[in-house]
Every structure is written in structure tokens, then in C-alpha cells.
Computed example of a mutant assay.
Amino acid sequence: MKDKILNAYARLAKDYELHVDTSSGHNACYERPAMMKLLPGEMDGLTALDAGSAAGWYTEQMIRRGARVTAVDMSPEMAEACKRRFGDAAEVLVCDLSEPLPFGEETFDVIVSSLTLHYISSWGPVFREFRRVLKPGGRLIFSVNHPFMDFTHFDRPDYFKHEPLSETWNKKESGPVEVSFYRRPLHEIINTVTGYLTLEQLVEPQLEESMQEHPNFRDWFARWGEHLKKHPHFLIVQSRK
């Protein structure tokens, strides 16, 4: 499974670097606005980890807010895209979140993980490491596919099953790419978080309506807007050490 994910994102890296920020409504109009509301407005003096950075959009936002940022991604191609974006403005590493992290204890004030953890089957080791590298009082903010969305969109027979899924993404640079990930019920998500950290907030994102007239996203709103007003697609969780 890990090799399938790595191969998929090796092919998708160019699309993330060139197009996601300006053409993906699910990111720009839905997930990112909700995540950004949870981040501190001023991050001067804070250390932050972008855990699953892809091409580095969240890394850029945290740098702009004053944080000292380290970005990690399992995909070497994504890490290279992130490096091209920032040069020396952030430390960028190839790093598998399911393995021990190459950081000392209590290193980070904030960890952000955007739409990454559903690519990992076993969350226990990941959250153990997140807790280890967070400073006391530090926050973890992450987003994943919403369990209700996975269950209904893929027409699964058993909501409570932890299982792998796959779908095909057809992107401009890569063409069709099979993307694999894991679905799990809500209680498994919450129980894992609370086994290591203190749960502070659950967010089911709402559309950023101000983006509706943006020329890049009019077609996306026409296709997805009414659906996402009534059907959650992502889940965001904020917790604290």
C-alpha cells in the first residue's frame, strides 16, 4: 500500500506544484479556509511542523505568519516541489510519518497535517510521535476525509470497518492516477486522538462563499457547491498536548 501511495504522489507532484492552489476548489474554497481559522493569527517565535506538506501551501502560510517551519513529506517529489517554493525559508525533509520523527522531544509549538493521515493505516505510532515532539500546550490541527463521506461516496457495506479504498484522480499534468487511502469510523479517529492528546474542537468545514465568483472556481461551485452545503467531505480536528 505504501508503495502505491508513493508512486501515485510521484506522478501527482507536478499537479500539486502547479495547479492545486489555483484550481482545486476542495482545497481553496473548502478545507483551507476552515483550517486557517484554527491557526494562530500571529506565529512570531513559534516553531511549526507541516506534517505531510505536499508542495508547501501551509508551510507558506505559517512562514507568512512568522513561524519557523519544518516541512516533511513521504514523497521525495513533493519534498522537492516544496524546496523549490521556499529555498532556505523552511527546512524541508523527506519523512515517513509512520516512522519515528527525526526531531527532539518538545520541538514544536504547532503541528499542521492537511489531508495526510488517511494515507496511514495505523495511527498509534504517529500520534505517539506527535505528542513527543509537541511542546507542553502545543497544538495539533489535522484534516482527513470525513468518515461519512467515505462510507456514502464509496457505498461501503460496513461503516465500522477500517479498510483501504482507492479512486482514480484525473489531473492535468499526470492524467489518470489511482490513489489509495484508508477509511475508519469516527469513534476510531476520536479515540486515537484522545489516547494521546486533549481534544479541543471538531470542525466540519463550510464553503467559503466569498470564493464563488472567483473565475477559477465558478465551475467547481456549480458542480460541488450545493452538495457540500449538505454533505460533509472533510473532518478537521484540533487537539492540544
Rank of each mutant, 00 (worst) to 15 (best):
I5H: 00
Y159D: 07
D150G: 09
F234N: 11
L197P: 05
L46T: 03
E173G: 00
E226L: 11
R223W: 11
E200G: 10
L228Y: 10
A90V: 08
Q61C: 07
G87H: 06
F234A: 11
P215K: 13
L197D: 01
Q238P: 04
S98R: 06
M74Q: 04
T107Y: 07
D109H: 15
A8Q: 08
W57M: 11
P164A: 07
W220H: 01
D50L: 01
L12P: 09
C29K: 02
H162N: 10
E226P: 10
L134K: 08
Q238N: 06
K135C: 02
L228Q: 07
I63C: 04
V20D: 00
M36Y: 05
K14Y: 01
I5G: 00
G25P: 05
L199V: 14
H118G: 09
S239I: 07
Y196L: 10
P102S: 08
K37N: 03
F130M: 15
D73I: 05
P215N: 10
H187N: 14
H233F: 15
I111F: 04
G25V: 02
L207S: 11
Y16I: 07
F217Q: 04
V179I: 11
N27M: 14
A89F: 10
A79W: 04
H162D: 11
D158H: 13
A54W: 05
V133N: 04
P125G: 09
S24K: 12
V94D: 09
R139A: 07
F154E: 13
L228S: 09
H227Q: 12
L39H: 02
N27I: 08
D155W: 02
W123H: 14
A10P: 00
